[in-house]
C-alpha cells in the first residue's frame, strides 16, 4: 500500500482518541494483570509474590460464593432474560395494537440510572412500608410478607428479579433483527396451515439464531461482571449471600489491598473473555452454515 499523502493529518486526527484509548483501556489492562501478582498498598512499591493473591482468593469462601453468584447472574441473564426478550420481540414484530408504545415503555428503564431504580426497589421490598408486603397483605397472603432483602433465602432472588424483567435493551436489538425477516415467509407458512407458534418456532427462531447468540453472549458477559445494582441494594449482604466479585474488588480497593483488587479484576477480564470465546467457539460452525439475519 502506498503511503497516504495526508498521513500527518491522519495521525493528528487519530491521536486524541488513541491517547484516551491507550490511557484508559490498553495501559490499565496491562497494569491490572501485572500488579495482580503483587502485594501492594498503593503507596510503597508493589512486592511481587507470584500467584499468592489468586491462591488466597480461591481459598476464600466469600470469594468462591461471590464467583458462584456471578455465574448465577450470567446464567439467569443469558438463559432467562434473553428468552423473555426474544418472546417479546416475536410478539411486537407482529405489530399488535400500540406496539410502538410498548416498545418505548419497556425500554424506558434503560435510560434511568441504576441508583434511582435500586432506591425505588428498596422502597418496594422494604419490610415495614414496602408495597410488595402491602400488596401481599391486601390479597390475604400475610404469611408471605417478609424483609425481602434482609433475609438470607430471599435477598439473592430479590436482587435478580429486580434486573431480569428489564428486558428492554435486548428486546430492542432482537426486534430489529426480527423486523428484517420478510413477511412473505410468514404468509407462505400461513397458507400451508402453520399456526403462529409453528411459524415462530420454524421460521423466526432459526432466522434469529445469530442475533440470539450475540445477545446471549453479551448477557453472559454482563452477568459475569455484574456489580452495580447489587452494590446499591444490599452491598453483598446479608452474610455475603448476594455478594459478587465486583463488590470484593471495591472493598479490597478501599482497604488498600490493591494487589488483591487487581487479581479480582484480572479474573473478571479473563472470565469475560473466556465466556465470549467459548460461546463463539461453540456456535462458530453453525453460524457459518446458516444465512441468518444479522
Amino acid at each position: 500500500m502506498r503511503v497516504n499523502k495526508n498521513w500527518k493529518q491522519i495521525i493528528l486526527f487519530l491521536l486524541p482518541a488513541l491517547i484516551l484509548f491507550g490511557v484508559y483501556f490498553i495501559y490499565p489492562l496491562g497494569f491490572v494483570i501485572v500488579t495482580s501478582f503483587s502485594k501492594w498498598n498503593g503507596i510503597s512499591a508493589p512486592v511481587f509474590h507470584g500467584f499468592k493473591n489468586y491462591i488466597e482468593l480461591f481459598q476464600d469462601e466469600t470469594f468462591r460464593l461471590s464467583m458462584r453468584n456471578n455465574i448465577v447472574w450470567a446464567l439467569v441473564l443469558g438463559f432467562v432474560q434473553i428468552p423473555l426478550a426474544a418472546v417479546m420481540a416475536m410478539i411486537l414484530a407482529r405489530k399488535p395494537k400500540g406496539w410502538k408504545f410498548f416498545r418505548t415503555a419497556y425500554f424506558l428503564p434503560n435510560v434511568i440510572s441504576q441508583v434511582a431504580l435500586a432506591m425505588m426497589w428498596l422502597a418496594i421490598y422494604n419490610a415495614e412500608f414496602g408495597i410488595l408486603n402491602n400488596l401481599l397483605e391486601m390479597m390475604g397472603f400475610e404469611g408471605l410478607t417478609r424483609n425481602w432483602l434482609g433475609n438470607m433465602d430471599t435477598a439473592f432472588p430479590a436482587v435478580l428479579v429486580q434486573q431480569v424483567f428489564y428486558i428492554g435493551y435486548f428486546m430492542v436489538v432482537i426486534l430489529a433483527s426480527r423486523m428484517g425477516i420478510p413477511d412473505s415467509y410468514y404468509e407462505a407458512a400461513e397458507i400451508d396451515g402453520a399456526n403462529v407458534f409453528q411459524q415462530e418456532f420454524y421460521i423466526t427462531l432459526p432466522m434469529l439464531k445469530p442475533i440470539l447468540i450475540t445477545t446471549m453472549t453479551l448477557a453472559l458477559a454482563y452477568g459475569m461482571r455484574h456489580f452495580e445494582s447489587t452494590y446499591l441494594m444490599t452491598n453483598g449482604g446479608p452474610a455475603h449471600s448476594t455478594s459478587v466479585m465486583g463488590i470484593l474488588l471495591y472493598r479490597n480497593l478501599g482497604a488498600l489491598n490493591y494487589g488483591e483488587s487487581n487479581a479480582i479484576g484480572a479474573i473478571l477480564i479473563v472470565f469475560g473473555g473466556a465466556t465470549i470465546a467459548l460461546i463463539r467457539w461453540l456456535f462458530s460452525r453453525n453460524l457459518d452454515a446458516d444465512d441468518g439475519i444479522q
Binding site: 500500500m1 497516504n4 487519530l14 484508559y24 490499565p28 489492562l29 498503593g42 458477559a221 474488588l249 469475560g272
Partner: peptide
C-alpha cells in the same frame, strides 16, 4: 482515508466495549 492498519485499529478500538470497566477500578 486509506492507510495501513486501519481495519486493525478499528477492531481494537471497538473491542473496548467487551472489557469489563469495573475490573479497571484501581488503575483508573
Amino acid at each position: 482515508e486509506n492507510f495501513r492498519f486501519k481495519n486493525g485499529l478499528l477492531t481494537i478500538i471497538l473491542s473496548g466495549v467487551l472489557i469489563p470497566i469495573i475490573a479497571l477500578m484501581v488503575p483508573y
